[in-house]
């Protein structure tokens, strides 16, 4: 197996996902199968081939520096799970 359970846990941590024992086993198996399949890419000679990041040839999509009305604060906070005095509340951020 190419991906170890340590790596699965590392990736889960980066993704902020908590895996139980069962999920860890399952993802370990599945991710390995998929990554094995993806390894076929290694066979292709891509020396000097540019990367395609966009499916369009566009360059330069700009807007003018002209203010638009911001949303009402009520709309900004309408979907917030927790708010107080116009601000969104979260568990304390430790610095």
């Amino acid at each position: 197996m190419k991906i170890t359970d340590q790596e699965v846990l590392h990736v889960a941590g980066l993704s902020r996902l908590k895996l139980d024992e069962h999920e860890l086993k399952r993802f370990l198996r599945e991710l390995n199968a998929i990554v094995d399949y993806m390894d076929m890419l290694a066979q292709i000679d891509t020396a000097g081939v540019p990367e395609t990041v966009h499916a369009t040839m566009l360059t330069r999509a700009l807007r003018q520096d002209i203010p638009e009305r911001s949303q009402e604060r009520a709309a900004a906070l309408a979907n917030a799970p927790s708010q107080r005095e116009g601000k969104i509340v979260v568990p304390r951020v430790i610095e």
Partner: peptide
Amino acid sequence: GCSARAGLAPNSSTC
């Protein structure tokens, strides 16, 4: 297009 100015009421310069 939200204003980039500081000092506005919290979350009022958002979209």
